[in-house]
């Protein structure tokens, strides 16, 4: 029995997925031993948040077949909302430091970010993607891609026009002493950002795997005609998917506000990193996107540590090129095109 598990594990290790996950863990541990555990902490916090943005991206790609290049702007919308929701709350906390708002205030800001993100996703579908879907069925991927680039520019410039180009940041969400885990001090905000990412991604995975609606979303991604045949209302699923994907990105923006203050182009970095993740892990695979998020995060952290901060986009991009040459479907990618796995 145990022998069987061991041989299964060894087989898994030989697959691209097993090998790369094991290699990531080994490199992360070795690097932390060599340079200090903060590397591991940085990887985990960055990876957790990246996972949120990347799952949203994966969802858009897998279900709606949209190569979303405006996803970073929903991150920006999330951070902007969190800033405007949290600033009055933070003033209130300043006057009443003992009130329970000090604990749940940041959560309110993040929930606000999620709700506004979801609503703006729905608006984007109603105003931009929906009309295009009605008009053109040919060349959908290219047309929708161009639309997302346009949407991205529009949102960046709208931010600049209405809210200005300055940095809108906060000092921190949760005040108090940093948490200490194994002699490493992690600020409460970072620890909470990771915890929130874990909770949101797990909830999302559970939703996609076990609920009727989650299954319907996967069904639409795998065979849209089949989904229509069994009675799934495609328009509803499309709206739900867009709002979910945008809310995921906005939550990431909201909960990282203490690290990335809101400004017009704040979304570009998470967007590019999330695209690295999606290409690395393969299109339309949620658990793969989560694993890929930690790999890209590690790659970025290690590049900054050993090569230099200016190189943090060069090394992942080079790796992406190699992957596209040797394994175009990605490390965890399904060979079934456009299919969204659990």
């Amino acid at each position: 029995m145990s022998n069987n598990i061991v041989s299964k594990f060894l087989n898994w290790m030989k697959s691209a997925a097993g090998f790369s996950i094991t290699a990531t863990i080994v490199i992360a541990v070795l690097a932390s031993i060599a340079s200090g555990p903060y590397l591991l902490v940085n990887t985990i916090v960055t990876g957790g948040m990246l996972a949120l943005v990347a799952t949203g991206l994966t969802l858009m790609l897998g279900v709606l077949n949209i190569a979303m290049f405006a996803h970073g702007e929903f991150f920006m919308i999330g951070s902007l909302t969190a800033y405007y929701v949290f600033t009055p709350i933070s003033n209130y906390i300043g006057e009443n430091p003992e009130s329970f708002i000090a604990v749940i205030g940041p959560l309110i800001a993040m929930a606000g970010a999620a709700i506004v993100g979801a609503i703006s996703g729905i608006v984007a579908e109603k105003l931009v993607f929906g009309p295009l879907r009605k008009r053109s069925t040919d060349n959908w991927v290219m047309n929708s891609f161009l639309l997302t680039v346009g949407l991205s520019m529009l949102l960046i410039n709208l931010h600049q026009l209405i809210f200005g180009a300055d940095f809108k940041g906060i000092v921190g969400y949760w005040t108090g002493m940093p948490v200490s885990i194994a002699d490493v001090f992690i600020s409460r905000d970072r620890a909470m950002a990771f915890v929130i990412a874990v909770i949101v991604v797990s909830l999302f995975w559970f939703f996609m795997t076990y609920t009727r609606t989650g299954m319907a979303i996967r069904a639409v991604s795998q065979d849209i005609t089949g989904a229509q045949i069994v009675g799934i209302d495609i328009e509803k699923i499309v709206l739900l998917t867009i709002s979910l994907a945008c809310a995921l990105s906005a939550v990431a923006g909201g909960s990282l506000l203490f690290m990335y203050p809101s400004y017009p182009t704040v979304g570009l970095e998470p967007l590019y990193l999330a695209w690295f993740v999606v290409i690395l892990s393969g299109l339309g695979n949620i658990l793969g996107a989560v694993a890929g998020a930690f790999m890209v995060a590690l790659l970025k952290v290690i590049t900054v540590e050993y090569i230099g901060a200016g190189w943090d986009f060069v090394v992942p991009s080079a790796l992406i090129m190699l992957i596209l040459i040797f394994k175009p479907s990605g490390i965890f990618g399904s060979d079934v095109r456009g299919a969204l796995d659990k």
Partner: peptide, 15 residues
């Protein structure tokens, strides 16, 4: 057939 290829038989039937 338009089956959901990345879902199990049971999931397909539930759909």
């Amino acid at each position: 057939m338009n089956l959901f290829v990345n879902m199990s038989v049971r999931e397909n039937l539930y759909m």
